[in-house]
Design a protein around this nucleic acid. Structure first.
Length: 879
RNA sequence: GGGCGCAUAGCUCAGCUGGCUAGAGCAACUGGUUUACAUCCAGUAGGUCGGGGGUUCGAGUCCCUCUGCGCCCACCA
């Protein structure tokens, strides 16, 4: 809870204030004093809770993190100063594939779940160059290595964030592999299972052959890859039938149907040919059969609306499975599954049983064991030899599906996997999720479209099981039948008070360890959850769902979800799904989407591009406040170029704040004292308008606008207002008191307006004259400022600045010192502005060192200047 | 193929619901500077607001269209 500023008994300003060292000094103090500790006594209405993105722990943070986390921090600091008890936790996303990859490469190991645990693992000093030479270690050893490395990384992350000045409550830290996250992820999984929102199914799914695991729709990305169309002819089994127009004859001259394919190696998996029902070329052949090239398997010719008459020959080969359309065709046309590609991405070693012909089995032997690419070469040779390949392959570049973190094309492999219902197969759920997008305020608003489009484009439920190791285990066991095989749909679940469990180590209630893997016994589910399955629960984990009900009641639903716009389809969407199924509510009120950092060539900065800039050096060079200034200029949702020049500007601003504060405090004014001089009143009135503007901007999560306005006012305040009043402030009497009080009040206000952006330098200057941390001081109040301003003349401030500018111009053009005395300045202006000028003439004369100021009636503004030691008169005017 | 966003000074960007001669910072240039600040100050120059239509008394701002760039999505045989 913030409080009204309280002045210290004496002002203590350093002789020569500097920025250096402020980060360490104040970060230590904030931690010692618990400045950012969440106040658990606050009611929900007084709380502002933030669903902080847990950064992926797989290496180092980069400037992109500094950028977006600063945005959130400015909002957190604003809300805290406004009086909210801010719940600002930090999490580490340390489970999942990126962490495993990093651990493998860091230690030179790979996990082999069949190996036994080794007490004191002997690792090579240097990891082997070739991944093939990595040391195989047991699952438990591997997890230990993951925990060891992530602990180091997380400490480094924390150090950086502390140095950056994030006002995170570090006592509320969690990690997605930690005890609490495992417990909550398993509890949510079992709750979904009990409701029927989780199920397992044996079905084709996208499969990464490198990681040897299933992946979900949200993790796919298209990449353009070179390929080639191969025109293949399939002889008609009815030799008297009429071949479709345009098709080349079969080898030997019989009628044939020609298809064009980019994956000729899948001919062995062909289960049918398909064409559009209205396609005249193929209409007479529907229901007939053809023989596959080389293998001679008889397959039907079928009709389906998804066949595109304009692609290739209009007829397509259905293979199990070449792409997602194959899966649709396979399912809707009720075709057999003839899969040959295994989990390692290679063709099965033994000839499949549907090849009954000896020649076919011999042909298959030539592609057995091969990966897709190798098999393709061999297959093309065989097709050419057999005469089924017509002409040469025609090269094309076409999009191919990849796992976003993988580097080999995905295959489609049939396997039993766990799914969470997300609306992908249920229109009612889907529509409901889209509607719930309305319950969230999106910043910027157009980001909602991304969400809506994604939900509407779902083509299946969310596949959450992963065949990996460092993740939250799927918390179930499978009952084994008399032959030792898992009984489908007979899962054994742990009691709630046993969570979290590791089914590979723990056993289901009522079973003995000796029954593990035995007929009539049980076996633990070997899989872990998708990293998004735990990340989708960050509100539940952070707020303590089921483990800290009091905290949960005070913080959930949360106020703000900050995140990058690129993970709307994963993190944001999946969090919505879990919150909907468990609570029937949206998890937060606001979604604040941040943009990306672009390198100077306007490319996204990312580790894979190798163009990242590490932040520590920048924080040292420009100060954390300088770097934060640059970050805070990035508008919500807008990509921003990495720009060190702006950091330099930010550093200058922070230094200016130190110096201006030192100067203004030197006058010893009272920030609560009265003001009566026209210029002082007008300045405070303008300041009140600034407070309104900055407050409204922050309430709309537009921190960048708040900063821009505050900064513009501040420079004007230093360059014009301070110059106009400083001679008066040096004097005595009521006019001087008005100036010093106005300066003190403005300073107190400006320091607080800057506090969310420049937490270190504002804290420093605040400490010179105020009790307690500025970050717990109340946000400035425009109403009080207006009361203090009293009545003011709206022309005073602008006419003062205008005249001052003209006096400076005259001096500059005469190449004189800004302090050069002016003998006579004649100002021509309209009536209202003349009257205003007359009231502040003493301040303008002081600031311009003007001996005599004449104010003359006229239509347009102009200023004529005569210097004391007249070289020549100087007249300036605006046209 | 569908959708979203962007296009304003050499560079990075403001310009909110249309309204006074289009702004800032940086860079450039010209000067100044013994007491808050050289981590400074003042000034100068620089723009047909991507092109073309339209609505309006009035358009950088609203509508249409075209162009370029970026991103997201798509069943890519």
């Amino acid at each position: 809870m913030s409080h009204a500023p309280r002045r210290r008994s004496r002002i203590d300003v350093p002789e020569r204030p500097v920025l250096d060292g402020l980060e360490d000094k104040w970060a230590a103090r904030w931690r010692a004093d618990g400045i950012y500790t969440f106040d658990r006594s606050a009611d929900r209405a007084e709380v502002f809770s933030i669903d902080t993105p847990p950064p992926t722990v797989s290496g180092a943070l980069h400037v992109g993190h500094v950028f977006s986390y600063t945005h959130t921090d400015t909002v957190a600091r604003f809300q805290r100063m406004r009086g909210r008890s801010v719940f600002y936790p930090m999490g580490w996303d340390d489970n999942g594939v990126p962490t495993e990859r990093r651990v493998e490469n860091h230690f030179g190991v790979r996990c082999d779940a069949s190996l036994p645990y080794v007490e004191h693992l002997d690792l090579p000093d240097e990891p082997p160059k070739d991944r093939g030479d990595y040391v195989a270690v047991s699952r438990v050893n591997f997890i230990e290595l993951c925990e060891r490395l992530t602990a180091e990384d997380e400490q480094a992350f924390e150090d950086l964030f502390v140095h950056l000045g994030l006002s995170v409550d570090w006592s509320t830290m969690y990690s997605t592999i930690g005890q609490r996250a495992r417990l909550i992820a398993q509890k949510a999984f079992l709750a979904d299972l009990a409701r029927g929102d989780v199920y397992s199914a044996d079905a084709p799914s996208m499969w990464d052959v490198t990681f040897q695991m299933a992946v979900s729709q949200a993790e796919l990305e298209d990449r353009d890859r070179p390929g080639a169309y191969h025109d293949l002819v399939f002889p008609l089994t009815d030799g008297s039938a009429i071949a479709p127009e345009g098709s080349a004859p079969a080898p030997g001259g019989g009628p044939a149907l020609m298809v064009s394919t980019t994956r000729p190696e899948l001919v062995v998996s062909c289960v049918a040919l398909v064409a559009h029902p209205d396609d005249e070329r193929y209409r007479s052949l529907f229901g007939t059969t053809v023989r596959t090239p080389v293998f001679g398997v008889e397959v039907p010719v079928l009709a389906h609306r998804l066949a595109d008459p304009t692609k290739g020959t209009g007829a397509a080969m259905i293979c199990t499975f070449g792409d997602i359309t194959d899966v649709t065709w396979w399912r809707e046309l009720d075709l057999p599954a003839r899969a040959v590609i295994g989990r390692d991405g290679r063709f099965a070693a033994d000839p499949p049983e549907w090849l009954d012909d000896e020649a076919a089995r011999t042909a298959y032997a030539r592609i057995a064991h091969k990966a897709a690419g190798g098999a393709r070469h061999v297959m093309v040779d065989m097709l050419r030899e057999s005469g089924n390949l017509i002409g040469d392959p025609k090269p094309v570049t076409h999009p191919v599906k990849f796992y976003e973190k993988g580097d080999k094309p995905l295959e489609i492999v049939q396997s039993r996997q766990w799914y969470i219902r997300n609306g992908g197969r249920d229109d009612l759920v889907r529509d409901d999720l889209v509607r719930r997008g309305e319950d969230i305020a999106w910043h910027p608003p157009y980001m909602q479209t991304r969400f809506t489009d994604w939900v509407n484009g779902l083509n299946g439920d969310w596949l959450v099981s992963r065949q990996r190791y460092f993740g939250v285990p799927i918390p179930v066991w499978h009952r084994l039948d008399d032959e030792g095989l898992p009984v489908p749909d007979d899962v054994l679940v742990p009691e709630a008070d046993r969570l979290p469990v590791d089914p590979a180590i723990d056993r289901p209630t009522g079973f003995d360890e000796s029954q593990r893997g035995r007929p009539g016994g049980f076996v633990g589910d070997p899989d872990v959850m998708d990293t998004w399955a735990t990340s989708s629960l960050t509100p539940q984990i952070a707020c303590g769902w089921g483990v800290d009900d009091d905290l949960f009641a005070r913080t959930f639903p949360m106020d703000m979800r900050p995140q990058g716009h690129d993970i709307i389809r994963t993190w944001l969407f999946s969090t919505m799904v879990r919150s909907r199924s468990e609570f029937g509510a949206v998890p937060w009120r606001h979604a604040a989407l941040s943009g990306w950092i672009l390198d100077p060539d306007r490319k996204k900065m990312s580790k894979s591009r190798g163009n990242v800039v590490t932040p520590m050096g920048l924080l040292d060079t420009y100060g954390s406040d300088g770097v934060r200034y640059w970050a805070a200029q990035g508008r919500p949702g807008t990509d921003t170029a990495f720009d060190e020049k702006e950091m330099k500007v930010g550093r200058r601003l922070a230094i200016k704040l130190l110096n201006a504060s030192k100067f203004a405090l030197g006058f010893g004014g009272d920030p609560d004292g009265a003001v009566h001089e026209p210029l002082d009143s007008a300045m405070l009135a303008d300041l009140a308008a600034l407070v309104d503007d900055a407050t409204a901007a922050f309430e709309g999560f537009d921190y960048a606008r708040a900063l821009e306005r505050t900064e513009a006012f501040f420079w004007w305040f230093c360059d014009d207002y301070l110059e106009l009043v400083k001679l008066r402030a040096y004097g005595d009497g009521p006019a001087a008191t008005s100036a010093t009080n106005a300066l003190a009040r403005a300073l107190s206000t400006l320091q607080r307006l800057f506090a969310p952006f420049l937490p270190f330098s504002t804290e420093e200057v605040w400490s010179w004259w105020m009790e307690g941390s500025i970050h717990l001081a109340a946000w400035p109040d425009a109403v009080t400022l207006r009361e203090a301003a009293g009545s003011w003349n709206p022309f005073v401030m602008s006419v003062a600045s205008d005249v001052l500018r003209e006096l400076r111009r005259a001096k500059s053009e005469a190449k004189r010192n800004m302090k050069a005395p002016i003998d006579l300045a004649t100002v021509v202006d309209e009536q209202e502005r003349r009257e205003a000028l007359a009231r502040i003439a003493h301040d303008v004369r002081d600031a311009g060192r003007v001996n005599e100021l004449d104010i003359v009636d006229g239509d347009s503004f102009s200023v004529t200047v005569t210097f004391a030691e007249a070289v020549d008169d100087h007249r300036t005017a605006r046209p």
